[in-house]
Design a protein around this nucleic acid. Structure first.
Length: 156
DNA sequence: GCCAACGTTGGC
DNA sequence: GCCAACGTTGGC
């Protein structure tokens, strides 16, 4: 099993929205590296840290789980969508998404600053690659985030 | 709102 | 294939 981190602006889609919806399709990702992780590497059951970007403060606020493997992001085909991409076609959809399901809020959300300050999280991608919106997480880092965030049952 | 970092596009 | 111009992300 692999571990991941996804970013969302809480004004657009927050962990509370995911808790309310139960699960959601992770649409609108328009970055190739992020797309490739979703299309090629994410598997049902993988655990996902849910990160609020452009928030005060930014940080990890919850845990989700991959509930469906990659399928085409059809917003790319919709001219009325903000995520429309004229290069996408039905045969070659170009953009892909997975579904994620809500698992838990972090009892103690971990701000970006807290992630940077924790020695056991040294090298965690989110502290250095700030622009990658879907990224792999080291298993030890995932466990440490759960532990620091008060989620003992996922801390391994 | 600013702006640094960085990903993407397109001319050559 | 290089790289300048441009657009976007996201922390502050």
């Amino acid at each position: 099993m692999r571990y991941w981190l996804v970013k969302s602006e809480p004004d657009v889609y927050s962990i509370d929205d995911l808790a309310r919806d139960g699960s959601t399709s992770w649409d609108g990702v328009r970055n190739y590296q992020a797309r490739n992780f979703m299309r090629d590497d994410m598997r049902v059951g993988d655990l996902v840290l849910f990160y609020h970007s452009n928030a005060a403060p930014p940080g990890v606020v919850g845990v989700a789980e991959v509930s469906r493997e990659a399928h085409p992001d059809l917003l790319a085909l919709d001219p009325r969508s903000d995520y429309f991409d004229p290069r996408a076609t039905k045969d070659d959809p170009r953009w892909w998404m997975v579904d994620i399901a809500y698992r838990a809020h972090l009892p103690r959300p971990l701000s970006l600053q807290a992630l940077r300050d924790a020695p056991e999280l040294e090298g965690m991608l989110v502290t250095t690659k700030s622009r990658l919106s879907v990224q792999p997480v080291d298993p030890a880092h995932f466990a440490a985030v759960c532990k620091l965030g008060g989620l003992q049952w996922l801390a391994g």
